[in-house]
Amino acid sequence: MRPFIYERVSDWAAATQAAGGGASAPVSYLAGGTTLVDLMRLDVMRPQRVIDINALQDGRYGRIELGQNGLRLGALVRMADAAAHPDVRHHYPVIGQSLQLAASAQLRNMASLGGNVLQRTRCTYFRDVSYAACNKRNPGSGCAALAGVNRMHAVLGGSDHCIATYPGDFGQALIALDATVDLISPDGARTIPFAKLHRQPGDTPDQETMLRPGELIVSFTVPAGPWTRRSLYLKVRDRQSYEFALASAAVALDLEDGAVREARIALGGVATVPWRAADAEAALRGKTIDEQTAMAAADAAFAGAQGHGHNDFKIELGKRTLRRALRQAAALEI
């Protein structure tokens, strides 16, 4: 690990000031540390200053608030606390489950929600700096995964420059439910759709988010909707627990007399970013969920998918995961 200057801040102004546009050297925020310390130890991330923002926890960064219009989750809320929160579990089961099925109890105690959505890919060729070719680490160096061992890699949203999978789970729940992200920086506060937070790799896979230098996630707001209660997160993996998804689906349904009024669908483990499956949602609108309509939705969701060898199976697996999730969500007793 490279040396860095460690600073603790107690208010956001000091934080964003320390990390903001004027900072001459690479700066990272430290919350749970489960991504940052990991990647610093691997020499992938080399911040020269680390701004510990955990002392911000007492403000709105650390709260979970349920209101008429939706759910507000502070960015410094720990995954475990959000997953266990009765309001989250009752009104937004897909959020609780996506957090609950991620990582381990220890990591969920540490990791913040803000850090969670910013976690970096698990691609070996990214995480091991001794591989020369990684456009995400070294723009222009190539992508070793394209013709490499890519069982865990993405079949949706990739490019000729990068097929690294977005590894998170919570992000799928957020994007499915049309969440927004509240941000703050020395330039001021702004709110953006969560769907706009992550960038597909395209030809700049090193640029993973739309965050500006020094910008800090304050909270997530998840709008209320008739679909949030009939929601779930299904995660398919080799192990029963403590593993990243091979394929996952976040599904929320608003049914009327068995027919779909609104469907909200996002896919994980198969895409380069939290992946909203709008085509699948459209395919379901007005339909009753059965084997055939679920299959049609799954086909729509993966219409543009592309495998790269080892991960070819994820197209079929992803479809089956979505089919299973839809059938399960439709059958939920609310």
Binding site: T124, M152, R239, Q240, S241, E243
Partner: peptide, 16 residues
């Protein structure tokens, strides 16, 4: 060896 760590080299966890 590309999965040279305990997140990618799978061994059972308690839940398995």
């Amino acid at each position: 060896y590309v999965n040279d760590n305990l997140a990618d080299y799978m061994i059972p966890v308690n839940a398995d």
